[in-house]
Design a protein around this nucleic acid. Structure first.
Lengths: 225, 225
DNA sequence: ACCTGAACACCGTTCAAGT
DNA sequence: ACCTGAACACCGTTCAAGT
């Protein structure tokens, strides 16, 4: 803990990638993506620019490392030994919750796929699909569907969370507003838009997310037969 | 066409949101996201900052409008009257190709979902699923799965395109590198990683994208029975 | 109403200089 | 090897002033 007494004096312990990534993560969580500047980092870490650049190549490298960190922790925390179906649901929910807690991760993964942490996710999904006896030819495609669905919905959810956190509107108003625009899209009266708007107002994010996962798994099983 | 003769003189015709969005789109396509600055825009449009700010609120507003434009064009160009299954595949491919041609759209959609253009996409998907006789309760979930899969894969594909366009590595090397990192992940020999790496090296982006769509449709039909 | 462009308050990044 | 912090070359955005 930093006491009031230690003012802007130089830090005594050594810096490291680890420490910098951790500090970046804290700033991103607390104040959002726009708040992560090298100036803020030097303040947070009581150091200079050069010190930071000595451990990370540049800002995008730093963001990537922070993202890897979050994803890797989710994969590492997975309880092994569960049934494949449960393991996939657990991985999906773990990623969903992690991106909900760290919304900046969602945007970052779109910018840089193929990061090591994401490869780990693909690998885990692939192995569980194999354990589920998915047909050999379908595993690769199915893994792509699952991972992209997970990251897509989680990212969208995170973007929503960001809007709700930053603004004066509550969740109910926000959804009502979308629903209203939705119904306005289609005044002629195709009934789907109306029902979707109603559904949107009432839906539970996590529950709907899991329903999508189950739908995909149903598709894999259908191909299996 | 701008002739050599007309130097940095003032433009004579009036500016408009339309024109600004179009200019932004051209800069984004030609030189990437980092090249879109208000300075570049004033040069491109032979005007001042205030003129631009008179028609768009700020940069993120401009990016959003440019994105809406691309997506709306895809939805508008859809041939109506096709079988629902074909209509869904056409929409998916249309979005895939549009995001491949305008990679910046991929990142933007993650940042701001619920834009009008995206609502149109959801609506189209929902209606086609209804025409496909998907069960009422599943349509909402299925639309979410489809749209997120489409945008996720298209965005990832666009990110890849960006890496390939900017760098000195070709597609074969790029994929080989990922495959290599993949196999290295799992030296103990879980066989899935090895097979996935092979598959990755040989795969066709569009074909795999469509295979994923079909898998999801299979899931919807499975629930249907 | 629409436009101009100097000015402001920021950025990321570099680098000579220190320990 | 690791760190400091002034300096550089940019940004997005504002705003008094023009037509």
């Amino acid at each position: 803990m930093a006491t009031k007494g230690e003012r802007a004096t130089r830090r005594t312990d050594a810096l490291s990638q680890q420490l910098i990534v951790q500090a970046a993560s804290e700033i991103l969580d607390a104040e959002g993506e726009a708040a992560l500047t090298f100036r803020a980092l030097t303040r947070h870490l009581k150091t200079g620019y050069g010190a930071i650049y000595h451990h990370v190549a540049n800002k995008s490298d730093l963001l990537a490392a922070a993202t890897d960190d979050v994803i890797a922790r989710v994969v590492a925390d997975l309880v092994t030994g569960a049934q494949p179906r449960e393991a996939l649901r657990a991985l999906a929910l773990g990623l969903f919750d992690a991106i909900d807690a760290h919304p900046w991760v969602g945007a970052q993964l779109t910018r840089e796929p193929w990061r090591p942490a994401l490869l780990d996710v693909y690998k885990t999904v692939g192995e569980q699909l194999q354990a589920l006896d998915a047909p050999e030819e379908a595993i690769f495609d199915a893994a792509g569907v699952l991972v992209n669905y997970i990251l897509g919905v989680a990212g969208q959810n995170a973007a929503n969370a960001r809007v709700l956190a930053g603004g004066e509107t509550g969740r109910a108003e926000f959804l009502a507003d979308i629903a209203a625009r939705w119904t306005r899209l289609d005044p002629a009266g195709h009934p789907w838009a109306q029902r979707a708007a109603k559904r949107l107002r009432e839906h539970d994010d996590r529950a709907q997310f899991l329903a999508g996962i189950d739908l995909i798994l149903a598709g894999i099983e259908a191909v299996n037969r």
